[in-house]
Design a binder for these strands. Sequence first.
DNA 1: AAATCAGACAACCGCGTTAGT
DNA 2: CACTAACGCGGTTGTCTGATT
Length: 275
Amino acid sequence: MRKPEDKFNNDKKLKLRKGLWSPEEDEKLMKYMSSDGQGSWSDIARHAGLQRCGKSCRLRWINYLRPDLRRGAFCPQEEHLIIHLHSILGNRWSQIAARLPGRTDNEIKNFWNSTLKKRLKNTTVTNSTSSSLNNSDSASEQIRDHVAGGGTIFPVLHEHVDIDIMATTSLCGGDASSSSPPFTSMLCPSMLTVNRFDPFPHQQLNDPCDISGGAQFRFHGGIGEGLYGENHSDMFGLEDNNIRNWNGESLRMGEWDFEGLMESSFPNFLDFQFQ
DNA sequence: AAATCAGACAACCGCGTTAGT
DNA sequence: CACTAACGCGGTTGTCTGATT
């Protein structure tokens, strides 16, 4: 046992709040995390004066209050990255989130289920009238199968890629040559070998693509220019034999099963040519 | 203007894993 | 080694909000 239950747990049994967080609760948690943010989550919940279980506090912090969160709409680049990562990793949202700076697994999961899945399904239906799509994940499964078989996702997705690349310029602002790169530069090989990403990238970047002032990342136009400015920090979190998630924690549980696949699939990704 | 619907997002729940005793 | 609290993840549900009728 990590820590014996103490008298506090008798108190907490009175009643724990559930449901949406109030601004006051947010403030309490924020204040506590910024000053004494240590210990187990149940400790934090108690000491911050919250009538919440530790689990709820953890979730609130990770998904909403964390200062390094990048909030707002997903950039087209992020969308493409999610699609590709999902094609490789499946519903391993935490692993996908670990490669998208400032995004949470919950956010990505919601985005996938509410937006991308439908869009991909439509695209796939449009592109392959011969195949039937009976279950809700068939679009991503088709993509995954395709990637696993050595292909790229682009034959399936090229229609909306064209659209999104067009949209990139207006959505992300800045000059199109630097902030709206084609995929070939977005996924340049250097991204696969450089440093793991900085957990607080907003401290060193000023990105026109940023929407809300949270964590940021940028895409440069040229091969050899990496992400995260001068650092070439790796949004894919690949470095040596160590990988960390967005909280800076080491990943566990067979995640390396996917890293090889990740690396081997990205060169295929680069085969794509814009029309 | 009110009712309904759909999409997006926030939060909870259950389960597997980790780690301390 | 067994037990158990804490943690982390993915699936699911609940709530809110804007669009449509």
